[in-house]
Amino acid sequence: LGLPKMEVFQEYYGLPPPPGAIGPFLRLNPGDIVELTKAEAEQNWWEGRNTSTNEIGWFPCNRVKPY
């Protein structure tokens, strides 16, 4: 089972920042694999864990694709 995984195809370094105070941003590099921890199809921002860095944070969902 486990959490859904997504592959990063466009880098994200915190700009634009996540809206409001939902949480810290998650740095993404192309090729990184992100395990989704909070993701809803109608939301533009998802939370996940970058398996390369083990960091957890928020990122724009348009930077990832199904793994």
Rank of each mutant, 00 (worst) to 15 (best):
R63Y: 15
L15K: 14
M6R: 07
F25G: 13
P4Q: 15
A41P: 11
Q43C: 12
I56K: 07
G2S: 14
Y67M: 10
M6K: 06
E40K: 11
A41T: 08
D32M: 03
L28A: 03
P24Q: 13
V34E: 04
T51G: 07
E47L: 12
E7K: 13
C61G: 10
G57M: 04
Y67T: 15
E7D: 02
Y12P: 00
G2H: 10
Q43F: 08
Y13D: 10
E47M: 15
E55T: 09
L36A: 06
M6G: 07
Y13Q: 13
W45D: 00
E7N: 04
F25P: 15
R27K: 13
A41Q: 12
K65Q: 08
Y13N: 14
P19S: 06
G48K: 03
D32W: 01
L28N: 01
G57V: 02
N44Q: 13
F59H: 02
E47G: 04
F9D: 12
T51K: 09
V64T: 05
E40T: 15
E47C: 14
G20M: 11
I22M: 15
W46T: 04
K65Y: 06
Q43Y: 10
P17D: 04
N62Y: 05
F9Q: 12
P17K: 10
N54P: 01
E11Y: 10
N54Y: 07
I22D: 08
G14A: 01
D32G: 01
Y67P: 11
A39H: 11
Q43H: 07
E55L: 09
I33H: 09
E11M: 04
G20L: 06
R63H: 12
P17W: 04
L28T: 00
V34P: 03
D32T: 02
E40M: 09
P16T: 02
T51D: 11
E55H: 09
G2A: 05
L36E: 02
P66V: 08
P24V: 08
A41D: 14
G57D: 00
P30L: 14
C61W: 06
G23Y: 07
R63P: 01
Y13C: 10
E42A: 07
L3H: 05
R49E: 08
E7G: 03
Y67V: 14
G31E: 06
R49S: 04
T51E: 13
A39L: 09
M6S: 05
L26C: 04
G2I: 14
I22K: 13
F9P: 04
F25L: 08
L28Y: 00
R63K: 11
V8K: 00
K38S: 09
Y12T: 01
Y13V: 12
G2K: 11
P60N: 01
E42K: 14
A21Y: 05
N29D: 15
E42Q: 12
D32N: 08
L26H: 00
N44P: 11
W58K: 03
K38V: 12
W58H: 03
V8P: 02
G57C: 01
E7M: 10
N50I: 02
K38F: 07
I33Q: 10
K5M: 15
W45C: 02
Q10Y: 06
F25A: 15
A39T: 08
T53I: 05
S52E: 12
K38C: 11
G14R: 01
I33G: 04
G14I: 00
I33D: 04
R63L: 10
L36M: 06
L3M: 10
E11F: 06
N50P: 00
N44V: 11
K65M: 08
P66T: 06
E35R: 04
G14N: 02
E40A: 08
V34R: 00
W58M: 05
F9N: 10
V34C: 03
D32E: 11
M6N: 01
L26A: 03
W45M: 03
I22R: 13
Q43R: 11
K5V: 14
E47S: 08
D32F: 01
Q43A: 13
C61A: 13
C61V: 09
N50E: 03
M6E: 03
E40N: 05
G14D: 02
L26K: 00
S52T: 13
E42V: 14
G14H: 01
N44T: 14
Q43T: 11
K65S: 07
P24C: 12
V8A: 10
P30S: 12
I56H: 11
N44G: 14
R49T: 09
E11G: 09
N44W: 11
L26D: 01
Y12D: 01
I22N: 07
G48F: 04
G23S: 08
V64W: 01
G57L: 00
V34M: 02
G20V: 10
P17N: 08
V8I: 02
S52A: 11
A21P: 08
Y13L: 09
G23F: 05
